[in-house]
Amino acid sequence: MSKSAVITTRLDGETADLIDQAAARHGQSRSWFVSRVLAQAAKREAEFLAYIQEGIDELDRGEGIPHEVVMAELDAMIAKHEARCRD
């Protein structure tokens, strides 16, 4: 059985109106729309944080590329491009 929770928040009038308009276009209630949008936002945020954690874990394992190396490669690419543009 899934659990549910009730969340109460204050919204400015403009945001409330936008939510009401969107809910009406879906033929649903304000509660349905807000629940759907919050679920989507929470999922995206969890996926983003997991992605960031993967990067942190890679760095912790020493799998990263040092900043100086990346900058040297970028500087070389820029210099090569600038040289082509001058010719």
Rank of each mutant, 00 (worst) to 15 (best):
A23H: 04
F48G: 06
D17K: 10
R30S: 08
I19S: 04
A42C: 10
F33K: 01
D87L: 09
A76D: 14
H81R: 11
V34P: 00
A50T: 15
A23T: 06
D75S: 12
D87F: 05
E14Y: 04
D17H: 07
D75W: 06
A39Y: 08
T9N: 01
G55M: 11
R84T: 04
Y51T: 14
E58T: 13
F33T: 00
D20V: 00
Q28R: 15
D75L: 09
E58A: 13
R84W: 07
A50R: 14
R25L: 14
R44I: 08
Q40K: 11
E68H: 11
A22Y: 02
L38V: 05
A16T: 04
A41L: 05
H81C: 04
D57Y: 05
A39P: 04
Y51S: 13
V69T: 14
R61C: 05
I78F: 11
Q28S: 09
A5L: 09
G55F: 12
D87P: 00
L49T: 10
G55H: 15
D75C: 04
T9R: 07
V37C: 06
H67S: 09
M77F: 11
R44L: 14
F48H: 12
M71K: 12
D17R: 12
M77V: 05
K80V: 01
I7F: 07
E58Q: 13
K43R: 13
